[in-house]
Amino acid sequence: MNIFRFAGDMTHLCSIIVLLLKIQATKSCAGLSLRTQELYAIVFVSRYLDLFFTFISMYNVIMKLIFISSSFCIIWYMRCHRIVAQTYDREQDTFRVAFLVVPCFMLSLMINHEFSFTEVLWTFSIYLEAVAILPQLVLLQRTFNIDTLTSNYIFLLGAYRALYMLNWIYRYFTERDYSQWIVWTSGTLQTATYCDFFYYYILSWRKNERLSLPS
């Protein structure tokens, strides 16, 4: 464990806490993409299957349980909660996730470290995480002004993966045979999808006005 990875995990945790706070405090999920949340639930379930049969550390187990339970909790809020579910913008959140899930699954069947059930699903989760934010970014461009908590949520999600990139560089130079080119490639692409958001986020923050992405 190094400081970059720990900071990345904490940033990821913060993004989920910000999201839950937003939903709890405002009793609204306006501007949030349910499809992105569902994709993240698929990512966590398909990646953390090893939760049941390989113990790495208590930290690892606890964080995995938090990520899985929080993603389902958010989906429950957006689908079932009698107040929050009313504020979900179904008409705008129309990204066809099949266009993300199917190619990622095909790719994980072709490019993986080992052709086994858990390994393919793990690889699928790595590819899917790279594109899971797209429905949210598309929704962002449709709903012009977004609230601060949502933009903070997306910023923290991007920051978590950027910190993980520092972690990969650090581990590459400090550990002998550490190589995870699938994770590195996918993670780099994932962080790249946030770049334009980062640009407009910092621009709006400096001009101290509400963030609005050009459609």
Binding site: R5, T54, I56, N60, M63, E114, Y164, N167, Y178, V183
Partner: peptide, 10 residues
């Protein structure tokens, strides 16, 4: 194993 370690990240 190397595989084991590779999966130690979240």
């Amino acid at each position: 194993s190397e595989e084991q370690r590779a999966k130690d990240e979240l």
